[in-house]
């Protein structure tokens, strides 16, 4: 009996959708706008995260060692650093590698190269390049380095310099910008989603308001609340499904355009991102659409069901 009832409700929902004509399509349009906002937010978040990740990637701390620092001490420090939970990666560059890289960087600077050639020994020491998982964690890594006794060889430190202290202001500012951008992004997302939900809810409420007399009649002929409410909820789900299809189609040319023209500016090819994450985006948009349609219908019909 439950299955028969369910089948009748679903069938009635489809029939109502088809027969409501303009009202149904107006509701689909509004849900499409809401889902477009959600999709745009997903893409914007991707651009924002990509940009922030790129910025984060440029930040690191380098520990330069004295020329006479023992390699075993440096390797031991590298291993200690790698054990820290804040550290993502530590790269060691020996004195010879430092020199090689230096020469490569200055290959067009003849006077520097000539000066280097004049000196028979390697004037550069090795260095460790440390990448933290989060920008905010560099400070605790720097604190670890300041407190590590292995850095001291006899009475002198094996460390020539740590560039964290020079970069601290930039890192702190970057940290604030990243945290601010994330908070602002979340706030804007929240506001846009709330506005979209309110608009969608009101449109569906209007569509149901038109049927309020019929709802009363259904109740008077003995239909249960679920029998009356069910088809409207199915209609809401149909709005969501059709709006999802429209939204995904609309974003195809939009992302192609952005991919072709804005990749340099955005730092990410939005079309590639859209296509490679199409399944996840479709699921999010579809579930949002169905949820919005069903919940809006459920709430909107409540006041007419109380008789």
């Amino acid at each position: 009996m439950v299955m028969i009832e369910l089948k009748r409700i679903i069938k009635a929902g489809f029939i109502n959708f088809a027969r409501s004509g303009v009202i149904s399509w107006a509701a689909v349009l509004v849900v499409t706008i809401t889902l477009s906002v959600i999709t745009a937010i997903i893409l914007l978040q991707a651009v924002l995260h990509f940009s922030l990740d790129q910025i984060k990637d440029k930040v690191d701390v380098t520990i330069y060692f004295n020329v006479n620092a023992e390699e075993s001490k440096i390797i031991s420090l590298k291993e200690s650093l790698e054990k820290l939970p804040e550290v993502e990666k530590v790269s060691y560059f020996s004195a010879n590698e430092s020199l090689k890289l230096f020469r490569e960087r200055h290959q067009n600077d003849y006077s520097t190269i000539a000066a280097l050639d004049e000196i028979s020994s390697n004037p550069l020491g090795g260095y460790l390049n440390v990448k933290a998982r989060e920008v905010s964690q560099y400070e605790s890594i720097a604190n670890f380095l300041n407190g590590d006794n292995t850095l001291v060889l006899g009475s002198t430190s094996i460390v020539d310099k740590i560039n964290y202290h020079q970069n601290k202001i930039v890192i702190d500012r970057l940290n604030n910008i990243i945290s601010g951008a994330q908070k602002l992004g979340f706030l804007v997302t929240l506001i846009l989603i709330i506005i979209s939900i309110i608009i969608t809810f009101n449109t569906i409420r209007l569509a149901i308001f038109i049927s309020k007399e019929e709802i009363g009649v259904m109740r008077l002929v003995g239909a249960s609340k679920m029998r009356v409410r069910g088809p409207f909820m199915v209609e809401g789900a149909i709005y969501g499904i059709i709006a999802t299809i429209f939204t995904l189609i609309i974003f195809l040319p939009v992302t192609i355009y952005l991919g072709n023209n804005m990749t340099n500016f955005l730092g990410i090819n939005v079309y590639d991102y859209y296509i490679s994450n199409l399944f996840q985006i479709s699921v999010i948009v579809l579930l949002s659409g169905i949820f919005l349609g069903i919940i809006s219908s459920f709430i909107a019909i409540r006041k007419y069901l109380n008789k």
Binding site: M218, A223, R227
Partner: peptide, 11 residues
């Protein structure tokens, strides 16, 4: 048919 469905009549 709606009135009949409401009281649980079969198809």
């Amino acid at each position: 048919a709606f009135a009949m469905e409401a009281v649980g009549k079969t198809n």
